[in-house]
């Protein structure tokens, strides 16, 4: 995306190519008032990588995820997606706050799936998926509809296209939400505890869709408590606690042989 790279001059953020990390966080901190929820986070997510963020509630993992598409503004540090700073333009050694319109443009390429689905209840599943392409990208109704039906089929809900969210189960709603995010053809997908609000029997159907998505090479950051999913699908597992990254590594290694005492304590409770 050329409009995102313009003006981004600085160490390691000048150009976008295959080696540029999809997400690069350098010493990112975030405070709500005097409460510091993220402390000096440095992370790198490569293209096509699936990264699972785990940790106890209040550890800052959701906040970090929300910073990536600027739903929250970082307090200090640098956070860039695909080589472009999120929410700021850098010029002459200074950071300039972006206009909300430009931030919206950045968000188009980042899909997000929420814990509580957040489907638009006054629209059918199909209309939910069509909304952003038609309203934000200006895609024609017919094209958007064809694409939406294709995406709904991909998440196994073609026959529920005309249902309103209230008439779908939690798992179905979350799959529609994934289709809605995919409709914008994102280069990065963020999942904020996508299965935490689901009945246990419905978790599998959502995870299956996410596994399939990971196989297509989508870059994904997943905040989750599903350790089985992390073990099977993730390339990297990051354990966060108290706003800091405690441990990073291959999920199979971290889960079976955690190095840090806090990781051990946490995993002994959830596994």
């Amino acid at each position: 995306m050329s409009e995102q790279t313009t003006g981004a001059v600085g160490e390691g953020t000048a150009t976008t190519d295959a080696t540029t990390p999809m997400v690069l966080a350098e010493h990112v901190s975030k405070s709500f008032g005097s409460n510091e929820v993220l402390k000096d986070i440095s992370l790198e997510v490569k293209r096509g990588e699936v990264l699972c963020l785990v940790g106890p509630s209040g550890s800052g993992k959701s906040t970090f995820l929300r910073c990536i598409n600027h739903l929250e503004q970082v307090s200090s540090g640098r956070l860039s997606v695909d080589g472009a700073l999120v929410g700021y333009r850098e010029a002459g050694g200074r950071l300039y706050e972006m206009h909300p319109k430009d931030i919206s443009k950045q968000r188009r390429d980042i899909g997000m799936v929420f814990q509580r689905f957040n489907l638009f209840p006054h629209m059918t599943a199909l209309e939910n998926v069509m909304e952003a392409p038609t309203q934000v990208k200006g895609v024609s109704k017919a094209k958007a509809k064809a694409r939406a039906l294709e995406l709904l089929a991909r998440v196994g809900l073609a026959e529920r296209a005309d249902y309103y969210p209230a008439h779908l189960s939690g798992g179905q709603q979350q799959r529609v939400a994934i289709a809605r995010a995919l409709a914008m053809d994102p280069k990065l997908m963020l999942f904020d505890e996508p299965t935490s609000a689901l009945d246990p029997e419905l978790v599998g159907e959502v995870l299956d869709v996410m596994k399939g998505l990971a196989k297509t090479g989508m870059t994904m950051i997943v905040v989750t408590h599903e350790m089985g999913f992390a073990r099977e699908v993730a390339d990297t597992l990051v354990f966060m606690d108290g706003g800091v990254v405690v441990e990073t590594g291959d999920p199979r290694e971290v889960l079976s042989n955690p190095q840090h005492a806090r990781t051990q304590a946490f995993l002994s409770k959830v596994l």
């Binding site: 909300p100 443009k105 968000r107 899909g111 997000m112 509580r116 957040n118 909304e131 952003a132 934000v136």
Partner: peptide
């Protein structure tokens, strides 16, 4: 629900839209 605002924002919709 504030989640509605967030979902729309995350999809790249501006405040007015």
């Amino acid at each position: 629900d504030s989640g509605q605002h967030e979902a729309a924002t995350a999809l790249g919709m501006g405040w007015g839209k």
